[in-house]
Amino acid sequence: MSGAVWATSGALFAVGLATVVLRRQMLAMLLGVELMVAAADLALVRGACRFMDPEALAAVAVVLAVAAAEAVVGLSLILRVLRSGRGLDAGELSELRG
């Protein structure tokens, strides 16, 4: 049974990674990151259950809080870009190069 959890979290992580790397729309990329974090949380919870270790669960809680903070910062930045009129397409952001 435990192999299934590993498989789902691995798949979830891969999907998240693919979204971040392939999608050009910034909101989707943010979603991708959150997916990757969620996959890690899943694996952690599974590990905590196996080792019956409350510390890991506390870690999951901390991670969730941090992910939330990350999302806040990400959204505010994306909104700032939107308001500056350059749309949500990550491809537009190539003024800095070389």
Partner: peptide, 18 residues
């Protein structure tokens, strides 16, 4: 924005590694 997304991805990688 670039810094954010790179940082976030790194964070995610770290977590999955953890």
């Amino acid at each position: 924005v670039k810094y954010f997304f790179a940082g976030a991805m790194a964070g995610a990688l770290f977590l999955f590694g953890l």
